[in-house]
Simulated scan of single mutants.
Amino acid sequence: MRVAILGVGLIGGSVGLAARQRLGAFVTGHDPDPEAMRVGLDVGALDAAGTLAEAVADADVAVVGAPVGRIPEVVEAVLRHAGPDTIVTDVGSAKGAIVAAVDDRRFVGGHPLAGAETAGVRHAREDLFAGAPWYLTPRSGSSGVVFERLTRFLAGLGARPQAIEAATHDRLMASISHVPHVIANVLVAQAAVVLADDGTLPATGPSFRDATRVAGANTTMWTDIYLANRDALVDRLDDVVHRLQTVRADLVAGDAAAIAGWNDAARADREALLAVGLAGGTAPSCELRVAVPNRPGVVADVALALGHAGINIHDMTLSPSDDERTGEVALWVDADGASRAAELVAGLGLRVEGAP
């Protein structure tokens, strides 16, 4: 297997390390910064480095790790140089604009939920994606073969691929990642005003440290992310403002019952979110076999239906019929979600076998 990395940073470098060590891949790389390529070679993330065209030549999979605002143009450049069977994906944390800009059967947008406080390929890790969700955002007409091959590649890196609509992804990321960064910046600015006014500031407790850990994160990268996902981010910030105004009104009114209910609801919501996060990928797997017609987008439809329900596909294989008019998709999902997965797939008008 040959893998091309376009953008040799923490994520791209970690893809390279994992692909080399876990899949035995030959990894080529390109980055506008020659130093990034040199370090990538030094740390073993790359076997070779060169121009974009050289890196992409003969690649089975090309992973674009450019800044999110530049991803569409880099993906288009990769597609121009890539072969007809090359799978192209990206790792950007905002997907709507990228998916809308790129219309090519070889491309499926992606976003691994993995990272570190340190940046750069020097900090790349082979195990960065181990057990981590990796969102995929196929279009309705995405090639089933491409989606299957990409899913198997990402699973080979140790990740847990999950299909999701681009708009849903961006709204989710705004809620769980981008808004927290905005609020962290606001909190440290507020505390800094107190320091400026009073000249002293007591030692901060763990709540403040934890809530502001991401404040002032990489300016270039995060300015790009905020703007790339601005529509969803503004929508979620409006919701935050509304919720803060509600709490403010309860405080002004001295409504202890409302404040207590608000706090209890937050605890319950957090417990529910933690339960979802801790449950993923822990159950034994179950195989489902789905009979599908040979039409564009059918595999993407299945993957999106399961992804929307939070059901991870651990592995996937496609077996076309002799006449290539139909085929069978074998899916491996968590055993405790297999019955629900079968119901969802059957709801698409497809025949399912293997459900408990």
Rank of each mutant, 00 (worst) to 15 (best):
D58W: 09
L233F: 08
A189F: 03
V43S: 04
F129E: 02
R139G: 11
A232R: 00
G50E: 11
A189H: 11
A25D: 08
D231Y: 12
V241K: 03
A101M: 06
L41I: 10
R125M: 11
G120A: 14
G9M: 03
A59M: 09
M37R: 09
F107A: 00
G13K: 09
T212E: 02
K95A: 08
A66Q: 02
L350H: 05
G92N: 09
A48S: 15
T317R: 10
R38P: 05
F208I: 05
V102G: 07
W332C: 06
A330K: 09
G216A: 06
D250W: 15
R105F: 06
L304M: 08
V43R: 00
R160K: 15
I11D: 02
H81G: 03
L172G: 06
P34K: 07
H30S: 05
P32I: 07
A300E: 06
L278N: 15
R351N: 10
D104N: 11
V252C: 09
D264P: 10
Q190I: 07
A155Y: 02
F129W: 13
A335W: 01
A256R: 15
R270N: 04
L233H: 03
A155G: 14
R230K: 04
G199R: 10
H314M: 12
Q162H: 14
A330F: 00
D250Y: 09
R289D: 11
R248N: 12
G7N: 08
D269H: 14
G120V: 12
